[in-house]
Design a protein around this nucleic acid. Structure first.
Lengths: 338, 338
DNA sequence: ATGAAAGCGCTAACAA
DNA sequence: TTGTTAGCGCTTTCAT
C-alpha cells in the first residue's frame, strides 16, 4: 500500500494547523481566499488525495459495494458484472466481487465478511442452493440492520428489498408466440434450470401461453443435471416429433441446435429453435440463435443506480418501501427461427 | 455499513481497559488466563470482529488486491477471475475488480485510484491499448514505490515484476504439429488478435514450427478488426484451398468452424480446425473444437499466490528479483481434428 | 497482570 | 480567520 502526503505534512510545510488545511481543501468560506490558494497549490504539487481508510473510519461509509454473483463463467452474469462495474465507477464507487459458486454456505460467509464495515450495501443474485433451500435470513438481517440490498435476476420474495428483474414470464410467452406465429405446431420446451426462480417463471410463461392455443401441442423436457443435458436432449429429439423448441437457458439452446443438426434437421425449415440467451453462444452458434435478450448490462446498471439511490438519499424518517424494477426483454430474430 | 461491537464496549462491560481486551483477544501471555477467558466469552457472545478499516488504518495493510482485467466478457478472463477470487478468498484477501475495457486511460485511472491506500497489490492483464501504445509507466511507478504487481497473460517486458504466463509460442507449435501429424498439408493460421502480445507469440510459434516442414504450406489471415472477421474468414476459405486451420483465438476458431460448415466442408475429414480456447465456444461448437487449453483458472490462482508471497514474505533487505512462471498448456483433442 | 496514552489520517464542534 | 480538541476503532509501547 502506497504511503502518501497527509494533511499533517501539508500543514507543517505551510505553517498552518491541520484543520485549516482540511477546511481549505473543501473551500470552506470561513478560510481566507489567500490561504485556500496556498493550500491548494501545495496539495496539487504533492498530488494530495485524502486517505480513504481514514475517511471511511470517520464517516462510516466505504463507498464500496459488495457484489455477490453465483457464477462468473455464466456469460449472463459476466455481462451483468460489466454493467455493475461501469456504473459503479461512474458514480465513484468501488466494487468487491464475490463469487458464490451457487453455494449457500459461501454466500452466507461473504455476507458476514463484508457486512462488517467493509461495504455500504450489496448487489446480489442469489445462488442456486440458496433458492432451492429458500434460506434467506442473512439478507433479512441486512435489511433489518438498514444495510441496503438490491437483488437482481435471482431474487427472493421473502426479502423486502429493491429488486431488478426481467419479465421472464412475459418474455417466455412472447417467445412461444413467435414460434406459433411462424407456423410451428409441435412444440417443446427444454430447460436445464428448472430449479431456479427464473426457470420456473419462464416455464409458467410458456404454459400460460399454451392455454388459448388450438392445434398446437407442447412437450416438456426438464433437465435437473446439466451434465446429462446432451444425452437427454438428443434422445428427446429422437423420440418426439417436434418442429419448434423454446429453450429456457443458453445451454439448452446451444445443445438443442447442435443435436438437431447432428440428427439431420434443417434449421429453421424443419425445426425452429428460440432461446433465452445473452451470451456468446447465440451469436456464435450456427445458424445463429434467435433469442430473448435479457439486457444483462442494463440490469447491472439499474441495480447500481437503485442501490446508490438508497445509499445517498434514503430518508430514514420515511417508511422503507421496496421497489421492483422490471426490465423489458427483447426478441432478437436471428437465423434459427422462420 | 453495519455498526458493531467495539473493543471499547467490550471493555466497558467487562470493567477492563481497551488494551487489556485487545491483548486478551490475541491471547497475549501477559494477560491472566481467567481474563482471557472472560473476554473471549463476551466477544463470542457479541460475535465481535475487529473493524477492518481501523486495522488497515493502523497497519497500512488492507488485505485487498486490485484486479485489473481488460474484458470480463471474454471467457478466458472470466475464468481467470474465478481462479483469482477463489484463491484470494482462501487466503483471506478481498479483491476489487476493475474492468479496463481494453482502454489505457481507464487502466491508468484505476491504478491511480487504487494505489492510494486502497489495495496492497495488483494483479493485472494489460489492456490492448496499453500494449499497442506500450505505455507502462503507471506500473513502473508502482514497482518503484514497492507496491507488488503481478502481471498475467498480457504482460510487458519493460516492467520488472512477477509474471504468470502461458507458453503461447510452444503451444502454437504443438497445435500446428498436431495438424501436420494428422495429415494436413495446406495449412492456414487465422487470428483476430494480431496486436496482442499473446497473439504475436502464438503467430511466432506457428511460423517457427513451419521452418522444418516439407510438403506443407501455410497461409496467414490476420484480422485487425474483429467486426469484419466473419466476412474475412468466409472469403479466405472460399479463395484458398485449405485442409487445416489453426485459430489463434476463440472468436477466429468459432467463426472458422461455422463458415466452413456453411461452405459445405466436412469437419474434420476435409478440414481440420484447432484453436486457442478456454471458453464455452469450444465445448458448444459443433463439432466440438479441438483446442489448446490455457488453464485460465490456474493462471489466476498462481497470480494470487505470487502476489501474496510478495506481500507477506518480501524481504526488503534483499534485492527484488522478479520471477516469471510459465503454466503448461494442454492439447485437448475433441472432434474438429482427425 | 492491567492500564494509560499516543498515533494511524481525517472531520467537525468549539475556542480563540 | 485560524487553531485546539476530541473521536472514529485499533495496536503497541510504556507505565503502574
Amino acid at each position: 500500500m502506497k504511503k502518501k502526503v497527509t494533511l499533517k505534512q501539508l500543514a507543517k510545510e505551510l505553517n498552518l494547523s491541520i484543520s485549516t488545511v482540511s477546511k481549505s481543501l473543501k473551500n470552506d468560506p470561513e478560510i481566507s481566499q489567500k490561504t485556500i490558494d496556498r493550500v491548494h497549490e501545495l496539495a496539487n504539487f504533492y498530488n494530495y488525495k485524502p486517505n480513504p481508510l481514514a475517511v471511511s473510519l470517520k464517516s462510516s461509509k466505504t463507498h464500496t459495494i459488495g457484489v455477490l454473483l453465483p457464477d462468473i463463467l455464466n456469460h449472463f452474469f459476466a455481462k451483468t458484472l460489466f454493467g455493475i462495474e461501469q456504473e459503479a465507477t461512474k458514480k465513484g464507487y468501488k466494487i468487491v466481487t464475490c463469487i458464490t459458486n451457487e453455494s449457500y454456505k459461501k454466500e452466507l460467509e461473504y455476507v458476514e465478511m463484508l457486512s462488517f464495515n467493509s461495504v455500504d450495501g450489496f448487489i446480489v443474485a442469489l445462488s442456486q442452493e440458496t433458492q432451492v433451500l429458500d434460506k434467506v435470513d442473512h439478507f433479512k438481517d441486512l435489511v433489518k440492520d438498514n444495510i441496503p440490498v438490491v437483488m437482481f435476476d435471482r431474487v427472493s420474495e421473502e426479502v423486502s428489498c429493491d429488486k431488478v428483474i426481467v419479465d421472464d414470464k412475459k418474455a417466455a410467452q412472447t417467445a412461444l408466440q413467435h414460434l406459433i406465429d411462424t407456423e410451428c405446431k409441435q412444440l417443446a420446451v427444454i430447460s436445464t434450470i428448472p430449479a431456479l426462480s427464473v426457470g420456473k417463471l419462464r416455464l409458467e410463461g410458456v404454459q400460460d401461453a399454451m392455454l388459448n392455443q388450438n392445434g398446437v401441442t407442447l412437450k416438456e423436457l426438464l433437465i435437473q443435471d446439466p451434465e446429462t443435458a446432451e444425452y437427454a436432449i438428443e434422445n428427446f429429439l429422437k423420440e418426439n416429433e417436434i418442429d419448434g423448441v423454446i429453450s429456457l437457458d443458453e445451454t439448452a439452446a446451444s445443445i438443442t441446435i447442435n443435436m438437431a443438426k447432428k440428427l439431420g434437421y434443417n434449421i429453421p425449415q424443419e425445426l425452429s429453435v428460440i432461446g433465452f440467451a445473452d451470451g456468446l453462444l447465440s451469436k456464435h452458434s450456427f445458424p445463429k440463435l434467435s433469442s430473448v435478450s435479457q439486457h444483462a448490462e442494463s440490469l447491472g446498471r439499474i441495480a447500481v443506480e437503485s442501490l446508490i439511490e438508497r445509499l445517498e438519499h434514503n430518508d430514514v424518517t420515511k417508511k422503507y418501501i421496496p421497489k421492483t424494477e422490471i426490465v423489458k426483454t427483447t426478441l432478437i430474430h436471428r437465423e434459427s427461427t422462420k
